[in-house]
Design a protein around this nucleic acid. Structure first.
Lengths: 245, 245
DNA sequence: TTTTTTGATTTGTGATCACACTTGTATTGA
DNA sequence: TCAATACAAGTGTGATCACAAATCAAAAAA
């Protein structure tokens, strides 16, 4: 029998060992930059240099340039004609464009998921609601990173249940693109006095637990529209005050 | 005044000169591979090697590996655990998944375009209809490449009018992913006796010329569903006959 | 003071090399 | 004859270097 390295052995001892994933440096760089972008660690219009990132990530330039290339193709970063690369600036048109696409695709994904989620899966995301509560109750100091991460886990746990290997990468790309916007919005939120963010998530869970695709879609649209609408108002008022001065 | 290379000169003589784009080798490789994938020049499950492609494209391995990385992130190619890369195989589930996503996103794009296209723009794509006719009238020998190219130009001329910088790259990614399927379907078409492919395009143009988003969306759905449905039947009958033998 | 020019530094791109892993083919053993 | 081993060719990954283009700063000219 031909034995290749990719297939798992049937040895009863080896069966207890988890396969040691051979992640490349390039993958680690890519995932790290992804995390930073979705979390909004880079600000819009900031330019990124290959050697600078390589130094910060303690690797050579090679894995970084390939990771940057990948991020550029999914529009998470932008290639300037000078061949330098920056995180895309925020404009009103782009925000509306992103929100429309997210409503379209994430709405479809959650509608699909609503009809396919088992009660077991629903209970998993329901438990996240509790996590959210205790986080907000425990400490009032803003822990934006954890909030962003939890929000991301909540949404993608749902999207994964839609069972589409095509839609999910697209949603990831959309989150990557709207990451910088969201970060700005969240900071603006906590400045403007926190409204109940958990309310939307509760209605999403409620719709999913009764397998109602339409209600789930509408609750989701309300949820993801809120930071965009907030940010749009903020940008418009800033533009108005700047126009006067 | 600071003068950089990226900004266009105001010199009245230089104004007549088109900027000479500084396309990198990597870009050329990427575009060439894209073209090959959408055109279906690679067959499903075919593995691609960096050095092999570098030899074929007459460059070093460097631009090729970066282009491959980009194509992998947009799911146009697939990275195997062995770290070799292949064009994804066709499965029934994946086909249905792709078709659903295309109906969702391209349908939205054409509905947006229907309300925004000027009569001038409509006449441009209407003229493509004629191109199609003369191509089919002139020679009966199948010129699949030209047919695929014209079909692509026709669709993207419409999508561009939707004015969404977010949706269009997603549609390109979807075409990239469904490219290998389409090629197989087109060959199957011409074997099975050609039904009127132009009919669908005529109804699309008709809907656009009266700015009817719903009709345009439905005509488009019929158009892009046809090869998928055809291919699905073909695969199912093949699977059935293979199950018997 | 303002503008232009010159030079030094930084940056992205492509090529080449070394290394580790995989794969395919002989060779050896039973 | 067949299975296992050993060897050889092939492949992806990461590092380093050379080069051209871009950027920035200081110096020179207006």
């Amino acid at each position: 029998m031909q034995k290749t390295a990719v297939e798992k052995s049937n040895d009863p001892i080896a069966a207890q060992l988890a396969p040691v994933g051979r992640e490349t440096v390039q993958d680690r760089v890519y995932l790290e930059l992804r995390r930073a972008l979705i979390g909004g660690l880079f600000e819009p219009s900031q330019v990124l240099t290959i050697r600078g990132l390589a130094d910060a990530l303690m690797t050579s330039t090679m894995p970084v340039r390939e990771a940057l290339g990948r991020l550029i193709t999914e529009k998470a970063l932008e290639a300037l004609p000078n061949r330098s690369v920056r995180v895309p600036p925020i404009t009103l048109e782009r925000m509306d464009d992103l929100l429309r696409a997210r409503i379209l695709i994430e709405g479809e994904a959650i509608a699909l998921a609503a009809t396919r989620m088992s009660p077991r899966q629903v209970s998993v995301i329901e438990s996240m609601l509790g996590e959210w509560d205790e986080m907000r109750a425990l400490k009032h100091k803003k822990d934006v990173d954890r909030e962003v991460t939890l929000n991301q886990r909540f949404h993608f746990e749902i999207y994964r249940a839609c069972g589409s290997a095509v839609l999910i990468p697209m949603i990831e790309s959309l989150w990557l693109q709207s990451g910088p916007c969201i970060r700005v919005a969240i900071y603006a939120f906590s400045d403007a006095g926190e409204v109940d963010t958990a309310h939307f998530h509760r209605s999403i869970v409620a719709a999913l637990s009764v397998q109602d695709p339409t209600a789930a879609r509408e609750a989701l649209i309300a949820d993801i529209s809120r930071p965009f609408n907030f940010l749009r108002n903020k940008l418009q008022s800033e533009a108005a005050s700047k126009g006067k001065s």
